[in-house]
Design a protein around this nucleic acid. Structure first.
Lengths: 204, 204
DNA sequence: TCCATTTTGTAATGATCGGTCAAGGATATT
DNA sequence: AATATCCTTGACCGATCATTACAAAATGGA
């Protein structure tokens, strides 16, 4: 039956990701993983280890591909436009047909990963988004694109929360238009350099 | 041992809620529910039906108590202050000691409720928040508290997404200060009546 | 051609899952 | 006091879970 591996690991990880994405870590059965990947139990265990190890591999690949894709928009010079493009890319991504709803990382974070190692890895990947956003805001501040009084950490926390809110809303059934609305309003919170006041010292 | 019911249904529902809240619907085992409530399987099934029916009862009670509590702030005359008070009440509520992390409704929405009836009920409760927020924004508009060009649905969608983002962030380990930061920034998106432009027609 | 290595398919294992059932005991009604 | 009704207890069921063990098979190198 074998001799040399007959499948592409990344391809299998992508297919397995769909199952975890749809059913959650605990909800994904080995049987479902077999069906989706087309591999037998033996192959899965041999190639990736047990369920937790497989999921960790899935998480890492997801973070490196789907999760990282929208972040490329942050590299454009205009910090505000970059952030907005990132959020819109996330919304577009979620609405691509034939894909499970929501975001794998957010779903898993909110779900019930019995394995502590899984929880830790998810938290690690989510923390990375926070770091990237903080760096983005810091860059905007150092290039005088936002109001000087802005708290960079607070702003990064906000947009990270918005990203999670997008995932949660989409998982709950929101369509693309609803996500676009959320982004429209969220971008109103961006502290343009023209504005006088910083964050939090609103006189109202 | 028995003859007449020896427990308070609402008390049991509160205790059961903690289990579902912590472990998710699928992750909550009957054994854990027995341990938390102090009741035997028979009593649980006799009083509430099967697991799905029990969870529906839990959801309804949660929505009527914990879920509805922050909404009372919306009734104050100042629409902006009311909304901010609601969000801060949610953050305070999540950080009360000894309670599971996140929001039961959001957790369940993101998790994997195998039962379609459960999914539907969660969606129904989450839609109610959306409706309440829409009504709140409509009231703000009719009392000239926000810019006339504001899209009420979009604004309600945004703050509903923020509320879910708060739950997701808290579930992921965020502390009260982080949630306060998110709220600080989110309130910057409120379209005060003084401002000229509406939502979405930003020239940028 | 033949062997060693590695994958693959299948079966079996022990644990846990949600759900059920019969037996027993306490209360309310008469 | 007797009876009927309801609740509780605990054991039990089939199904499914993740995991492991093992034998069959196919390739790569000699």
């Amino acid at each position: 039956m074998a001799g040399i591996r007959r499948f592409d690991c990344d391809d299998i990880l992508d297919k397995a990701a769909r199952v975890f994405w749809r059913d959650g870590y605990d909800g994904a059965s080995i049987q479902a993983l077999e069906a989706e990947t087309g591999l037998g139990r033996g192959s899965l265990y041999n190639a990736f280890g047990d369920k937790a190890a497989l999921f960790l591999s899935v998480l890492d690949r997801y973070a490196a591909t789907e999760g990282a894709a929208p972040l490329v928009h942050l590299s454009q010079p205009d910090a505000r436009a970059g952030l907005e493009a990132m959020l819109r890319a996330m919304a577009q991504q979620m609405n691509k047909p034939g894909r499970p709803r929501g975001c794998l990382l957010t779903n898993t974070c909110l779900g019930t990963p019995g394995e502590p190692a899984v929880k830790a890895r998810v938290a690690q990947h989510l923390a990375r988004l926070q770091e990237v956003l903080e760096a983005h805001v810091q860059r905007a501040a150092s290039t005088c694109q936002i109001a000087p009084a802005t708290d960079p950490v607070a702003l990064a926390r906000f947009y990270a929360a918005v990203a999670r809110g997008l995932g949660a809303s989409h998982r709950g059934g929101a369509d693309l238009a609803a996500l676009e609305d959320v982004i429209d309003v969220a971008m109103r919170a961006w502290p343009d350099a023209i504005a006088a006041g910083g964050v939090g010292d609103d006189p109202a």
